[in-house]
């Protein structure tokens, strides 16, 4: 896929992150640079401890880099203050984590509505309507009023996907989104992410060390020992899915 003519959604330039504990400095990211374009479905591959999660946390504005810059939607997020980052995150970035992290005292519907109503982006009625629509889209239209604790693992992760989509973010960061699921549920969730990407052109950056999942993505960025080892584009398979 050639992206030269398009503006990148996310642009990472020479990003580093070093954790310091006492006198010991542990560099985790050692100069990462790459771009992600609107509508892309990108896998970030790499073994455990390679720095994928740290990179995702930085790109999700949850963590500040030690040096370097990254831009999203034209904003240099390395210089923004905490309140700006909080607001930017709420409006533009969705998260899907390995563990669903749903609010256990809330129903599926309330969990999905939460990012919009907590930030005052939507009126409750409007948020409820959109959340119900999203839950129906992820196949849980008949589980709207189920408490999060009453759902299965795969269902919880689908609620988490719907929640990530609630504020219509430009980018969804998924950190091992199927890591806690059985094979069937993992397959369903990845199918769902792929379909949403295709339908709404929402950009996905998915961290995984599962080669099977990576094969479903349009592009694979491999991170090893805090550096980008390779960037590899995939071709479209006969079934319309992206293949290696």
């Amino acid at each position: 896929m050639s992206n030269d003519s398009r503006q990148p959604l996310l642009s990472v330039a020479n990003l580093t992150k070093t954790y310091v504990q006492g006198d010991v400095a542990s560099p985790v990211l050692k100069g990462i640079s790459f771009d992600v374009y609107p509508g892309e479905f990108v896998a970030m591959l790499g073994p455990s401890g390679s720095g994928k999660s740290t990179l995702l946390s930085i790109l999700g504005t949850l963590l500040r880099p030690t040096s370097g810059h990254f831009f999203m939607l034209g904003h240099d997020l390395t210089v923004a203050d905490e309140d700006e980052l909080t607001q930017f995150r709420n409006r533009n970035i969705g998260f899907v984590f390995q563990y669903h992290h749903l609010l256990p005292d809330f129903t599926a519907l309330e969990n999905v509505m939460f990012p919009a109503v907590a930030a005052g982006l939507m009126q409750e009625e409007e948020a409820e309507h959109r959340a119900a629509k999203l839950l129906t889209r992820v196949g849980l239209g008949n589980r709207l009023d189920y408490k999060a604790t009453k759902l299965s693992g795969g269902q919880k992760q689908r609620v988490a996907v719907a929640r990530a989509l609630m504020n219509k973010p430009a980018l969804i960061l998924a950190d091992e989104p199927t890591g806690n699921l059985d094979r069937v549920s993992a397959h369903q969730v990845m199918e769902l992410l792929g379909e949403i990407n295709a339908e709404s052109q929402t950009t996905f950056l998915i961290s995984t060390h599962d080669a099977e999942i990576a094969r479903r993505c349009q592009r694979r960025i491999t991170v090893i020992d805090g550096r980008i080892a390779s960037t590899e584009a995939a071709s479209i398979g006969s079934e319309g899915m992206v293949t290696a």
Binding site: G60, T86, N90, F95, Y99, H101, P115, A118, A119, N167
Partner: peptide, 16 residues
């Protein structure tokens, strides 16, 4: 703690 963490990741403010 994890719930509060996820709220913060969703862009919920410290004031909230």
């Amino acid at each position: 703690k994890p719930e509060i963490g996820i709220m913060r990741s969703m862009g919920v403010s410290k004031t909230f």
